[in-house]
Amino acid sequence: MTIEWQWLSTHTDDLWALSLDHLSTAIPAVLLGLLIALPLAVVAHRIRPLRGVLLGLSNIMFTVPSLALFVILLPITGLTRTTAITGLTIYTLVVLLRNTVEGLDSVPAKVREASLAMGRGRVGTLLKVELPLALPVIMAGVRVASVMTISLVSVASYIGYGGIGQLFTDGFQRNFPTPVIAGVVLTLLLALAADALLVLVQWLCTPWIRKGARA
């Protein structure tokens, strides 16, 4: 397998555009996933019987093959980016939901109780105490979901919104390895960059952990 560097240098603009296209599917999918997972996780955390149902459901959704998922979605949302994003969002839920529930579980009961006992309401306690303290576990989920989504976007090539995935289709069709290798490397780089960015965000958002070591 040889790489044609010539092809790469003439296609830098395309590679850049495909990367951006890739991210414009991946980022909304993760954000949307988070937006859905947060309230569901709160419900699952508060109402014991619902926990198993919601977590089980998200597990089952995860096992639906991507092709089948897109086939199901097509009649509803058509050949649009929305279909790609929706499908990927469903996959992120399995990680985001589980981690958010676990994050909320990890908040010490004493701390939650202290907040209520100080006269903070349930919503205030959730927003100001429970979610911030669950952040490290939630963020661990966001990192996994982001990396997973970035690598999964390519499957949306079926419906024309695969981003970097188009390089694979292209390469396989022409039996030309260079774009495939470029696609793999780019996916990897995007995933690493996203992960690094999220680590930084988490570091900035959790000063109490940073300074936590006993002086």
Binding site: K110, V111, M118, G119, L133, T206, W208
Partner: peptide, 30 residues
């Protein structure tokens, strides 16, 4: 309940402090 509780100090074992807030912010809660 919330109004009542703001008028009653509550101290528990191992303090139950908010780990993500500074000591000053913890004290300033109520």
């Amino acid at each position: 309940a919330a109004r009542l509780r703001r008028g009653i100090g509550y101290v528990i074992q191992q303090a139950g402090l908010f780990p993500h807030r500074t000591v000053l912010d913890n004290i300033a809660t109520v």
